[in-house]
């Protein structure tokens, strides 16, 4: 895996040479690229070797191992449940979905039930825009095979890896559940927004509860998925509408706890993420970028787009997703 910041001209040359690539950057730059075996998504935030930065001049390009072949697809919302139909045997699939789209919501709520979804590493991210442009500019994704920009649906890069390649998909989540069982939260109804929660056996107005108990909403709710910590991040607490909004859906029947407070993000990341990020495909969350104050600060070799949501089989929040393809 090769991760590079390239100019549009350099990226175009790589595409014309037949490389299989995922590309992140300003949508105006991606619109200049030729057709080929690539998918792209909009963002202007990146983690680089030198640290987090905003960049509108270059494209972050990840080139899959030489010998990889790929099939590019754009799926509309109704076709998302069939995304695994395109899986190449023994391969991996990359997915990019525009933030705030119907596809974003449908994949987040239903993706884990799609047939054969877990049969190979599925990773990707939710495309975004500069935070100042939210509401005025729609996040986009690009189907490189046709050179088409989309604001809805998902683009998929189904990759057949070279013989012997061993892909390994994992996450780095610096957050863990609070050890206080009194902070266990369940929700009678799921979704990106809730009004009610059950805490200590009692149903509560969750917006009021969060406010009255002084929740630090920069910390996510964390669920334990058979030993994997999966976050749901707070988006807004509306005390007037009595509603709490999230960046990913909560699910009924899942127990959540507020994350335990953590120290400095960069120091914690260095302790947990380890080394070897240079050869991995990775993306990190805009909330980690903001709350961890990553602009100008490095997370070592783990470079890539900073995103409005991460995908490792399912939608994640405040999590780094990493794929290692060992030869």
């Amino acid at each position: 895996m090769k991760n590079e910041f390239l100019t549009p001209a350099e990226a175009a040359e790589r595409i014309r040479a037949g490389a299989v690539m995922t590309i992140a950057g300003d949508e105006a730059l991606m619109a200049q690229l030729p057709q080929g075996k690539w998918i792209g998504g909009s963002t202007v935030y990146f983690m680089t070797q030198a640290g987090g930065k905003v960049d509108r001049e270059r494209l972050f390009c990840s080139t899959l191992p030489e010998g990889s072949t790929a099939n590019v697809r754009h799926l509309g919302v109704a076709d998302l449940p069939g995304l695994a139909d395109g899986y190449a045997a023994g391969g991996i699939t990359l997915i990019i979905i525009p933030a705030f789209s119907q596809a974003h919501a449908r994949f987040a709520e239903d993706g884990a039930t799609y047939p054969r979804l877990f049969d190979q590493p599925l990773l990707g991210w939710i495309s975004g825009v500069h935070l100042d442009d939210i509401g005025s500019v729609a996040p986009s994704v690009f189907d490189g095979a046709t050179g088409t920009r989309h604001h809805e649906g998902a683009v998929l890069l189904h990759v057949a890896l070279p013989q012997g390649a061993q892909p390994r998909l994992d996450i780095v989540n610096l957050f863990s559940q609070s050890e206080d069982p009194a902070q266990t939260v369940t929700f009678p109804e799921g979704g990106f927004a809730v009004k009610k929660a059950v805490i200590n056996g009692a149903e509560v107005d969750f917006a009021d509860y969060v406010t009255q108990h002084g929740f630090d909403t920069r910390l996510p709710l964390v669920a334990d998925y058979a030993g994997a910590n999966i976050n749901v991040s707070f988006r807004a607490v509306d005390s007037v509408a009595h509603e709490v909004q999230f960046y990913a859906p909560v699910f009924p029947g899942v127990e959540y706890r507020l994350a335990a407070p953590q120290g400095d993000y960069v120091a914690s990341f260095a302790a947990q993420a380890g080394t070897g990020g240079e050869r991995m495909l990775s993306c990190n969350c805009i909330l980690n970028y903001l709350y961890g104050e990553l602009e100008g600060r490095s997370t070592g070799g783990f470079t890539g787009p900073v995103t409005f949501g991460e995908v490792a089989y399912v939608l994640l929040n405040q999590t780094l997703v990493k794929l290692d393809v060992a030869a």
């Binding site: 884990a112 877990f118 590493p121 599925l122 998909l169 994992d170 996450i171 998925y225 058979a226 030993g227 994997a228 999966i230 899942v254 490792a312 089989y313 399912v314």
Partner: peptide, 8 residues
């Protein structure tokens, strides 16, 4: 990770 999420 995939097995954990599915089993959950």
């Amino acid at each position: 990770l995939g097995t954990r999420i599915l089993v959950n």
